[in-house]
Simulated scan of single mutants.
Amino acid sequence: MINADALRGYVDVMILSILRREPSYAYDMAKEISREAEGSYSIKQTTLYSALKRLEGTGHVESFPGQSQSGKPRTYYRLTDAGRDLLTVKCEEWEQTKNLVDRFVKGIV
């Protein structure tokens, strides 16, 4: 299981990446993160909602009302143009971070 602290700075990347494909609601995003993680990480609802509110507050995502397939009202989120730009920056940052850490763990793992 991946420690949540190790991913703290990259929860936004996961959310923005999901929303890059299509608008979604929080519960569905949590399921998608768990599915992609294949059991190695499970996001807490409080972490997800905090990130969504922060991203909405900075204009990187916007919320809108909608309904789930069952007809239940949901708050959906979609990526803004600023969010697309942030995703690009964060992905570049991730590559640099990964490359730096790889230099230190090379040959250990």
Rank of each mutant, 00 (worst) to 15 (best):
I2R: 10
I2D: 06
N3P: 06
A4C: 08
A6I: 15
L7A: 04
L7F: 04
G9L: 10
Y10F: 11
Y10S: 04
D12N: 10
V13F: 04
M14F: 14
I15P: 00
L16M: 04
S17D: 14
I18G: 06
I18Y: 11
R21I: 13
R21M: 12
E22H: 15
P23R: 03
Y25A: 05
Y25D: 02
Y25L: 02
A26M: 08
M29E: 03
E32K: 12
E32L: 08
S34Y: 10
A37P: 01
A37R: 01
E38K: 13
G39N: 02
G39W: 03
Y41G: 01
Y41T: 03
Y41H: 04
S42P: 04
S42L: 13
S42Q: 14
I43N: 01
Q45V: 14
Q45K: 12
T46G: 08
T47S: 15
L48P: 00
Y49R: 09
S50N: 15
A51I: 05
L52D: 01
R54S: 09
R54G: 05
R54N: 07
L55F: 03
G57I: 01
G59W: 02
G59E: 00
H60L: 07
E62A: 07
E62T: 08
Q67C: 07
S68N: 05
S68T: 07
Q69N: 09
Q69A: 13
Q69P: 06
S70E: 13
G71I: 09
K72V: 13
P73N: 07
R74D: 08
R74M: 15
T75A: 14
Y76A: 01
Y76L: 07
R78E: 03
R78Y: 03
L79W: 03
D81N: 13
A82N: 09
A82F: 06
A82H: 09
R84D: 09
D85M: 11
D85A: 15
L86I: 02
L86A: 07
L86N: 01
L87G: 04
K90L: 15
K90S: 10
C91M: 15
E92S: 10
E92W: 05
W94T: 00
E95Q: 14
Q96G: 08
T97F: 14
K98T: 07
N99P: 06
N99L: 08
V101D: 01
V101Q: 05
D102K: 14
D102P: 04
R103D: 09
R103V: 12
F104K: 08
V105G: 00
V105M: 00
G107L: 03
G107Y: 02
G107N: 02
V109E: 10
